[in-house]
Design a protein around this nucleic acid. Structure first.
Lengths: 209, 209, 209, 209
DNA sequence: CAGTAACCGAGACGGTACGTCACGTCTTTCT
DNA sequence: AGAAAGACGTGACGTACCGTCTCGGTTACTG
C-alpha cells in the first residue's frame, strides 16, 4: 500500500531527523501549502505564483524554494495532501454503493477549485514533460488506485464477484477517474444524483459482465 | 450538425468581407496555424509563444493578434482544426466495431504531441475561466459528440438497439473521451490492441444492458 | 579628439537611424539617466538599482535593459554625461590660472554625490574586471585628457613653455586627477582656496622644472 | 605614531580579555583573514562573500560575524593588515631615493589584486557612507602618512630641507597616493622604472621649490 | 569537579536585487 | 487598411547574498 502522504512533506523524509543546524520551521510548511491552495482557488493555475505564495504564507521566497524546488513540486504536494483525504468508508453495503460513493467523493473533490486547477495544471504541463508525468503518476494518481483495490476486496468478501482476477484495476480506475474529470471539468456539468446514478449503473454493468 | 470548423478561421466570420483597404493575407492564416502546431509539438504548452509563432510563420505579431485575440484563441483554432479530421467511416460492421474504431482514432490523436499539449493546456486554463471553458465545450468538445450520435443512428438502423432514447450520448461521450485521456495522458500507457479490446468490451456491456 | 558624449546614447549610434519598427522613445533615455543620477545621489552606488531606476524614470525595466545591458553600462553613461560638461574656458590668463581652474572644476564635480559614487563604484568594480576597466579608461577617463592637451597648447602659444614634448600629458593628468580624488574622496577634505592654491603651486613647480 | 594594526584584531580590543566562557579560537581569525584575501584576489570585491569567506576558512558564519560586524569591517581588517607591511627602510640615501622607494612599494602593493579590490571597494562604498569613510581614513589611510613624516624627518636630518614646516604632509601624501592609484588602477599602466623616475622627479621638484 | 557562560558548526530565516522572458499593446514606415 | 518591425508596460521567474536566528554540542574558567 502506498503512503500517499509521502509527497506532502518536502525533500527527504528520512527517519533520522536532521541534527545539525537550525531545524526547519514546521509551521511554515503548513502555511505554505495553505497559501498555495488558497491562491489556486482564487486565481487558478496562473494565480499560483511563488512570490504570492510566499507573501500569503508570511514566509520568504527563499524559504519556499528551500522546500519545493519549483511550482510543480509545490502543486504536487498540495494535490497529494488533498487527495489523501479520499477514503472509502465501509458502510456494509454492496458493490454498487461503494462505486457510487467513490464517484460522488471524487466529483466533490473536483468541485473544489484549488483541486481542479492544480490537478489540470499539472496534467497539462506533464504532456510535454515525461519526468513530471512520472512524478504525478506515482505520487498523485497511483496511490488512489487503493480505492479500487479495496472495493474489489470487499466485493469479493461479500461474494458479489467470484474471480477478482477478472477485474482490471487500472481500467476501472481510468474509467471512473477519467469520466468524472471529463464530466465535471470539460463538460462542466454538475455530478448530480441522476448523473451519478446513471454512471454507476454503467460501470456496474461493465464490471459484472 | 455542428460546423466544427467555425473556430478555425479567425475573428469575425462575417459573410460580408471587409471591402476597404488591403485584404488580409490568406496564406498567413495557414502559416500561423502550422507554426502554432509545430511549436506545440516541440515545446509543449509553454513552448507556444506568440512571439515564436509569429517568427516561425514569418509574420508580424500584429498580424497574428489581428486574427486571434489571445493565445487561447489561437490554440482553440489549432485544436479544432486537428479534431475536424476525426471521422467515423461506415464500414458496415457492428456497434462494437464502431466503438473500437473511435477509441482507436481518438487515442491516436492524443498520441500527437501538438494535440495533447494544446488540449490539456486549454482545459487546464479553463478550470478557472468559465468563458474559456464555455468556448472549449462549444467549439472543441461538443462537435465531437456527432461521432456518438452517428454511431447510435447506425446501430439503430442495424437493429442492434431498439430504444435509442436509452442511450445517453453525453454519458457515453464522457466515458470514452475521459477514459482515453486518462489512460493515454495520465497513466501514460499506450492504447494497444489489448487495452482497446478490453475497454470496448466494457463500454459495450454498459451500453447494451 | 575623442567624442566624449559617445557613451551616453546607448548601443549603436549608427549614422543611419533605424527605419523599421517603432523608434525608441527619446524622452526615456533622458528620464533614465536623470533617474540614475538621482538615485546615485540619494543612495550611493548600492542605491543604483535597476528596478528603482526604471520606477523613478517611469519606465519598464525591460526598456532600461534594452538600452543599457547592465548597471555598469548605465553608470558609465551617466558619468560620461556629467564629465562632458567639463570645459576649460580660455580666460587669456597664464598656465597657473588654467591649472587652478581645472583643479577647481574637477573638485567641484567630485563634490556632487552622484558623480563621486558612480565614478568610484565603477573604478572599484573595474579592479577585477579588465573589460570594464578598458571601457572606463576609453569612455570616461581618456576623453578628459583633452583638458591637459588644450592647456599645454595654450601655454605654448603664450610662450610659457618652449618644448611641449617635455610635458607628459598622461603623468600630469594622473597627478591632477589622482590627487584631487584622493583629497576629496579619501581624505574627505574640501578643496578650499588654500588647498587649491598650494596644490597648483606644487604642480606648476613640477611642470616648469 | 598611529597603531595601524588596531583594526586587524576584531571587535573589542579591550585590554581585559573576556574571562568567562570558552575563549575565542585564535586560529580562526587568521583563517578568516586569509580566506578573505584569497577571495578578494579570486573574485574581486563582489567575490568577497561572507558565506564564502566562512566556508573557505572552515568556520561558521556566526563565528565570522562575532568578530567583524559586516563585510566592511572585515575588508578594513584585511586591508589594514596588508598595509601594515609597508615600511621605509633607511638606506642612508637622499630624499629622492626615499620618495622613489615609497612610490615603488605602494605601486607594488596595488599590484596585488586582493589589495586593490578591497581598497577600491571600500572607498567606493564610503562615498555615500560618512561613517565608513571616517573609519577608512583613520584606520587605513592616515596611518600610512607616517611614511611621509618619517621621510621628511630624514631629509631634515640630512640637511636636504631646512624648514620642515614648508612641507605639507597631507598634500604630499595625497599627491603620491592619488597619482599612483590613478596610474595603476585607472590608467591601468604598470609603474615601470621610467614612470617611477619621471613621477619622482616631478614630486621632488614640487617639494624643493 | 560540577556549573555555567561563551564559544563553535551548521544551516534555516526574512529581505532585496538581479537579469530574463512572455504577454498583449502601441507606434512607426511601407505596401 | 493591412503588414512588418520592434519598442513599450507589466509581472513572474529562480538565484544569490545579506545579516540574523536557532539549534545541538564544545571548551575552559569558577565556585
Amino acid at each position: 500500500m502506498h503512503d500517499e502522504s509521502a509527497a506532502i512533506r518536502p525533500e527527504d523524509p528520512t527517519l533520522t531527523p536532521r541534527v545539525k543546524g537550525r531545524p526547519r520551521s514546521t509551521t511554515a510548511d503548513d502555511a505554505i501549502l495553505a497559501a498555495a491552495r488558497s491562491l489556486l482557488a482564487d486565481g487558478g493555475w496562473a494565480g499560483l505564483t511563488m512570490g504570492d505564495v510566499a507573501a500569503r504564507a508570511g514566509v520568504a521566497k527563499t524559504t519556499l524554494y528551500r522546500r519545493w524546488h519549483s511550482k510543480h513540486d509545490l502543486a504536487i504536494a498540495a494535490v497529494a495532501e488533498m487527495l489523501g483525504t479520499l477514503h472509502l468508508p465501509d458502510r456494509g453495503a454492496d458493490l454498487r454503493a461503494d462505486i457510487e460513493d467513490v464517484v460522488r467523493r471524487f466529483a466533490a473533490l473536483l468541485g473544489r477549485p484549488e483541486m481542479r486547477t492544480a490537478l489540470m495544471g499539472l496534467v497539462a504541463d506533464s504532456t510535454s514533460d515525461p519526468a513530471l508525468r512520472r512524478r504525478i503518476r506515482e505520487e498523485v494518481v497511483n496511490p488512489q488506485k487503493r480505492l479500487v483495490v479495496e472495493g474489489r476486496a470487499r466485493a469479493e468478501a461479500r461474494g458479489e464477484i467470484t474471480a477478482p482476477g477478472d477485474i482490471d484495476v487500472d481500467l476501472i480506475f481510468d474509467v471512473i477517474a477519467g469520466t468524472v474529470v471529463q464530466h465535471v471539468l470539460v463538460s462542466a456539468e454538475p455530478a448530480g444524483d441522476t448523473w451519478v446514478d446513471r454512471f454507476t449503473t454503467f460501470v456496474v454493468a461493465g464490471l459484472l459482465t
